[in-house]
Computed example of a mutant assay.
Amino acid sequence: MKLTLENLKEAGAFTGAPVEKEITWKQGETEYTATVYVRPLSYQAAVNDLRAIYGKTDGVAGRIAASICDEHGKQVFTAEDITDGPIVKGEDGKPMLGGDGLPQRTGGALDGNLTMALLQVIGEVNNPGKPKTSAS
């Protein structure tokens, strides 16, 4: 087979549509359930993995950011959202800047149980057939 875009499409070499999954996690005594969309591992995940090797991003945060998307495949997190919290926005909806000129963040990392639930569904989508474990 020649390596052409058409042959790659026919072989299924491009990631498909995001996979809808339901996650459940606990924060304190409260249990939450949410629907998430998981993009099968792709070029973007490989780029994030390489950035992590060279110390440019956190590996786990990069994997979650590359994998969790909306129903159309659009990324919903950045690695920084996961490690440092979301950007703080003003009443006008624009990011608030700190003294260093960078956007202010909430200063809190993603909850550990939620992180594990997201990693679990990323694994399920990319390693189908493996047994599930429960995230608490």
Results as ranks from 00 to 15, higher is better:
77 F>Q: 10
116 M>R: 13
4 T>N: 12
5 L>N: 07
114 L>W: 09
5 L>W: 07
28 G>N: 10
14 F>M: 09
7 N>T: 14
63 R>K: 15
130 K>L: 13
50 L>D: 14
23 I>K: 01
92 D>E: 08
57 T>A: 04
76 V>Y: 06
113 N>D: 13
2 K>V: 15
17 A>S: 06
3 L>C: 10
3 L>T: 11
17 A>C: 01
108 G>Q: 15
110 L>K: 08
55 G>R: 10
63 R>Y: 11
130 K>Y: 11
109 A>E: 02
99 G>R: 06
44 Q>F: 07
10 E>S: 13
126 N>D: 05
122 I>C: 02
38 V>F: 02
67 S>K: 01
85 G>I: 05
129 G>A: 02
64 I>P: 08
84 D>P: 01
128 P>I: 11
119 L>Y: 04
49 D>N: 10
100 D>V: 01
9 K>T: 09
48 N>H: 11
64 I>F: 12
37 Y>H: 04
3 L>V: 11
66 A>N: 03
77 F>W: 15
5 L>K: 09
30 T>N: 08
71 E>V: 03
133 T>V: 08
6 E>Q: 15
71 E>Q: 05
18 P>D: 05
37 Y>T: 01
116 M>K: 14
40 P>T: 01
95 P>V: 02
74 K>N: 15
4 T>K: 14
29 E>S: 15
132 K>R: 13
41 L>P: 06
33 T>C: 06
127 N>S: 07
88 V>L: 10
111 D>I: 04
58 D>E: 04
